[in-house]
Structure formats: C-alpha cells, structure tokens
Amino acid sequence: MSQDYTRFSVNQRLQHIFMFVPFIILVLTGFPIKFPESQFWSVVMSAAGGIDKARVIHRFAAGIMILDFSFHILYVFYNLIKKRPSLSEMHLLPTKRDGQNIIQNLKYFLFLSDERPRFHKFSYIEKFDYWAVFWGMFIMAGSGLVLWFPVQVSTFLPGIVIQIAYVAHSDEAMLALLAIIIWHFYNVHFNPRIWPANKVWFKGTLTEEEMEYEHPLELEEIKAKKETL
C-alpha cells in the first residue's frame, strides 16, 4: 500500500509563500529602476502604478520578506533548542556525502553509471537553493536598508558603504533572479521528470514513489524507525 509522507509542515509551507510572493513583487518593482530604458520593464512599471507607487510597494514587500526571514531564523533556533538534533540530523548542512553525490550524479548524467545518487532529506541541489537564499537575504536586506535610510546609516558608517550597497543591491538582485529562474525553476518546474510542477510546496506531502525516487535514504530511515517501534 502506498502512503503519503509529510515533507513540509504548514508552518514551513507558509514561510515559503511569504518568501516568494514578496520576491515576485520586489522583482517587478525593482528591476524597472535597474533597467530604466527597457521597454519591457516600462510596461511592468506602469502596471505597478509608476515609480512613486512602485517605491512604496517595494518597501512594503521588503518589510514582509524581512519579517518572514527573521521568523525563519527564530524558527531554526527554536527547533535547535527544542529538539537538540545531532549533526547528522541537521539535514540542511553541507556534508562530505554531498560531494560524493555530485560526483555520482555527474557520472550518471554522462552515462558512466546507471545509478542515481541516493539522497537523504535534502539533495545538494536543494541545499544550494536554501543557502543561496540565505546569503541573498543578508545581502539584499542589508543593502536595501542602507539605501532606504542612507543619511541615517552614514551617521555611523563611512560613505563608501552606501555606494557598495547600491552596487550590491542591484547586482545581487540579478544573481538572485537568475538563480530562481534558471536553477530553482528548472529543478521544480522545467525538469522534464517534474514538469509542470512539483506540488510539494502546496500539498506538503510526497507519495511513496516520489520518496523512493527523490529521497530514498530518508525513506529507508523512516521505514527502519517504524520497524523498531
């Protein structure tokens, strides 16, 4: 009998939604200023109600995203304190096995092996996604706040910080957008094995077959635990 396995709790799914909705709004209201002569972004800008409104919307969405990220940090700390997981139970940390998985996957891609790497709860692909957002949040929120309050920031930091923030905010935004559109969208949408979408962000569960294909080690562990009970 096949059964469903919970992958993301309601809390985690909401964290994802409160991250990607502001992300889309931030892209739509920010990129028209990064590319002030682009016709495409002109259409987006007028849809957002012109630059005056777009700036307000941008800051509102940024506020929500920062709150969401702060909540996530607290959530991680709360779970660390409450559950006191061992290192091997912190599945998002990069490990030696990720390196081995990458090599095995490359062999598989090149038809040097017919065996796919067996992933645990998070593959190196998913870990990369997670830590990319982590790094991106610090860069974007940090530089964004500097640009939001440049005069106040300059009372305690040198002026070059404002210039660095200006470059970093614009360039990291590009990096983040490309990473999402190319990497994240391929892995959860455009990958022909996944197309049209991996619905786990909404449903929160994976079927046994999906678990067997994507997270066999985790499935093994879950089953082993059940037997010992």
């Binding site: 090149l110 970093a168 990473a179």
Partner: peptide
C-alpha cells in the same frame, strides 16, 4: 572590485548551474 566581484560571481555561478542543468537534461 565590488562590481567585478559580482560579475564574476554571477557568471561563474550561472555557468556551473547551466552546465548541471544541461547534463541533467541530456541524461533525460
């Protein structure tokens, strides 16, 4: 150097990700 750092970081990351995607697609 901050500007160039970002250009190299972005180009490098995208090159690796693209390569991974293409290989993955090729296997499929």
């Amino acid at each position: 150097f901050v500007e160039w750092g970002f250009i190299i970081l972005t180009a490098g990351t995208m090159a690796l990700l693209f390569a991974h995607i293409l290989l993955d697609f090729g296997r499929w």
